[in-house]
Design a binder for these strands. Structure first.
Length: 425
RNA sequence: GUGGGCGUAGCUCAAGGGUAGAGCACUUGACUGUGGCUCAAGUGGCUGGGGGUUCGAGUCCCCUCGCCCACCCCA
């Protein structure tokens, strides 16, 4: 075997020509939905000031404490490869004054961006992955939460995913969230001996993590206890009720899941996640929520916001699992089949001319036999073979062969662009 | 970061101490200028890498790299 000297870094992947079509397909679906819903694209640098992520995501989170790709540049700045999509979008919102002096303007942004996290790779989890993201900054209206959810839901449907399950929760605000922490601590205090080691540790360090523990015994305990929804303050409870009302108004199905905890500190109120089955342990194909304190925390005026990140590689996994992977590419374009040196030269010239007219044309640089050229034209799904040999040259024609039907006719060389126009891209 | 499984041809997989194989794909031919079907032949391997045991190692042992699965975490 070929000795391969260099390999991709762990947890990264190449999108090969075979797969690129699928990427284009789902990117096009996403962009089209963003257009309909009036989200505008924002493109931010692939790295940011390290502090941006620490301050927004939270220094205690796994992302910040052990998953960031952080490095120092030659000027001594600490930079970090984009670990998350929301913080850079909010930074760009503030830095470019996208609110245009109207702090209540609803700024709807989308991005398609690689995200980097140092983690142990496994199916559906990579060190570089791609997120399609939506952010709506400037409004606290629960209808905005629902538009984010709706747009995402429409996206899944557009790319053939019909089994995405929306899980919904509210994590409250800085007023009421601590109440829940107190409540769950109080409830579990005398039940720790029934719970796993991790949860005993979490009791002190991060009690919220106890509620999404997968251990069955822990679940049994937690399910008897209070839920976040029970301890919401009146404003948060009202907001959440309205989110649910809008979801119902728009006919969006969801499942209440009081055990969703988001791993980033900036989330407030609405938290949601889209889950798909059968792609392994990493079943979340999109997740997000509201972040009403983030803009202010990053130096802006108090401004509410809500957004989502969609895991593109996981979307592709689900499509593969469901068998909806891209349609067979239709036959297209022309393959130039030439015999002999004079025909080869004429073919090159003709190919250039046809490409100038917008047609897709390739030639056989290997100068192989006619049989080999036709076999190649067939296997590469060309719609037409343009055959030129001494006979055709003498008559000033090209034999145009339809690769589906096998029908062939001679067309005068000068009339070829006209003949092919529209019929063969 | 912890535990477990797996790395053999471009792809999917055989061979479990004694000459590395099959199917598909690719190339060529049967068909002197006509693809898809059929038949035949051919190209293609330092068996992931390094070390060890042995007369002899895909095969046994150690190290290493990578992939997969679970934990954890997240999209």
């Amino acid at each position: 075997m070929l000795v391969i000297k260099y390999q991709r870094p762990p947890g990264t992947s190449d999108v090969t020509p075979d797969e690129a079509g699928q990427w284009h397909e789902i990117e096009a679906s996403f962009v089209e939905l963003c257009r309909r819903h009036c989200f505008s694209e924002v493109r931010t640098p692939i790295f940011e000031d390290t502090e941006l992520f620490i301050r927004s995501v939270g220094s205690g989170t796994d992302i910040v404490s052990k998953e960031m790709y952080t490095f120092e540049d030659r000027g001594g700045r600490s930079l970090t490869l984009r670990a998350e999509g929301t913080a850079p979008a909010v930074r760009a919102y503030l830095e470019n004054h996208l609110m245009q002096q109207d702090p209540e303007r609803v700024v709807k942004l989308y991005y398609i961006a690689p995200i980097f996290r140092y983690d142990r790779p496994q199916a559906g989890r990579y060190r570089q992955h791609t997120q399609f993201g939506l952010e709506a900054i400037g409004s606290a209206s629960p209808a905005v939460d629902v538009e984010i959810i709706q747009t995402t839901s429409e996206f899944y449907e557009a790319v053939g995913i019909d089994n995405a399950l929306l899980k919904l929760n509210s994590v409250g605000c800085p007023e009421c969230a601590p109440e829940y922490v107190k409540a769950i601590r109080a409830f579990t205090a005398d039940k720790l001996e029934q719970m796993c080691e991790d949860c005993v540790r979490r009791y002190d360090e991060n009690p919220l993590r106890m509620i999404d523990c997968k251990n069955e015994q822990c679940r049994a305990v937690v399910q008897q206890g209070p839920t976040m929804i029970d301890t919401l303050c009146q404003e948060c409870a009202e907001h959440f009720a309205q989110v649910r009302g809008y979801l119902e108004l728009l006919g969006l199905a969801y499942e209440l899941d009081p055990y969703i905890v988001r791993g980033l500190d900036y989330y407030t109120r609405t938290a949601f996640e889209f889950a798909a089955e059968d792609i392994g342990a990493q079943s979340s194909i999109g997740g997000g929520g509201r972040y009403d304190g983030l803009v202010e925390q990053m130096g802006g005026r108090p401004t509410p916001g809500v957004g989502i990140g969609i895991g593109v590689e996981r979307v592709l996994l689900v499509r593969q699992q469901l068998g909806v992977a891209g349609a067979e590419p239709a036959r297209s374009g022309c393959f130039m089949v030439t015999l002999g040196d004079a025909a080869w030269a004429a073919g090159l010239k003709l190919a250039a001319q046809l490409r100038g007219r917008g047609l897709r044309v390739d030639v056989d640089y290997r100068r192989r036999s006619m049989k080999a050229q036709l076999r190649y034209a067939d296997s590469e799904k060309f719609a037409r073979a343009l055959i030129i040999g001494d006979d055709e040259l003498a008559k000033g024609v090209v034999a145009v062969r339809d690769m589906d039907s096998g029908q062939q006719e001679e067309v005068a060389m000068g009339e070829l662009p006209e003949f092919l126009r529209g019929s063969t891209r």
